[in-house]
Design a protein around this nucleic acid. Structure first.
Lengths: 168, 168
DNA sequence: TCGCAATTGTTGTCGTCAACAACAATCTTT
DNA sequence: AAAGATTGTTGTTGACGACAACAATTGCGA
């Protein structure tokens, strides 16, 4: 039970009511989050939304979204991976990866090469164009990362990366 | 450019190839994440997915999702808020909140009371049933939070909350 | 006081994403 | 050769963020 909720119950005067027991509908930043302040998930969710928006905005000139970036980065560093391997490593569903790669392949950034060893699978590679494009994506992503640093602080960002390293 | 990528280029023997330059398609945990390890957004995203899954699972017996929980918590602590106020405070779109409240109202957990002062808006309240239900939700959510603590450590969780406090 | 802009809730659409289920082609195991 | 597993694919469902439009209502300025 939060203090402010208790205050209401014990009759501490709310500053404005509308006849329905309504307590100041506006005035956004004085609303009690109560139990939410103790939940990591809530803060993480808000942060993640902020990060994604900044990422998308910072990379808008190249029209690359976070998941696309992560796929290209992994493929670039590990040429020849199968879709299953990429999906498992990044925690993406393989069904989801199909459309993702369709999109990247249609933009000539990635190519699927039918594997001769296992004809079920595709070996994934960046195209030459994809390689140079990825270099630019990485520069823009680094710029985005500086925005994160500016938002939460250099050492906080590094500490965050250490804390969450077990999820990568 | 990652070390393992360089190794490939410099001819360090990859252990298995399939004739297409493919390097060990399987063996998930040896895949180089390259630039992703330096991106807070990637770790945060993976973490957030893990948290949501655990939250949903831990509260599955009461069938409450994170967003529903956050809305009920705020309404419980600030009875009489309008939909706009809740949406702004939680960073939810007011259009999204409509369905969310429809669902909660149909389960008799929340009620919308037409405001007499401003007939455009609704004053949001928990029902009696909603109040007792929320108490149980909070107990389960606290259990979920202990899972988080067990996953990343007590002091890491607290540090995380401090780092991300500016997003709540 | 009248009229126009802003606000509130609502409806609808679009795109992203996670979670499943089913399927054909192919591999592996027995 | 038969049975079972794997890989890529297609499709569906539901939660969610973003956006646009709308009616009812409010508030403000001319």
């Amino acid at each position: 039970m939060s203090e402010r909720a208790i205050h209401r119950q014990t009759g501490v005067p709310a500053r404005k009511r509308d006849g329905n027991g309504a307590a100041r509908p506006n005035d956004a930043d004085e609303i009690d989050l109560d139990a939410l302040v103790g939940h990591a998930g809530y803060a993480v969710r808000r942060f993640q939304i902020w990060i994604f928006q900044d990422f998308v905005k910072t990379l808008s000139e190249v029209d690359i979204r976070p998941t696309q970036y992560s796929a290209m980065t992994v493929i670039g560093a590990n040429p020849g991976l199968t879709q299953m391997a990429v999906a498992k490593r990044l925690g993406i569903e393989r069904a989801r990866l199909v459309h993702l790669l369709d999109s990247l392949e249609s933009r000539r950034l990635v190519k699927r090469i039918k594997s001769k060893a296992d004809r079920r699978s595709h070996a994934l590679h960046l195209t030459a164009q994809g390689t140079t494009a990825l270099a630019k994506f990485k520069r823009l992503a680094a710029e985005h990362e500086r925005h994160v640093e500016a938002k939460i602080g250099k050492e906080n960002r590094e500490h965050l990366l250490r804390i969450l390293a077990c999820f990568t």
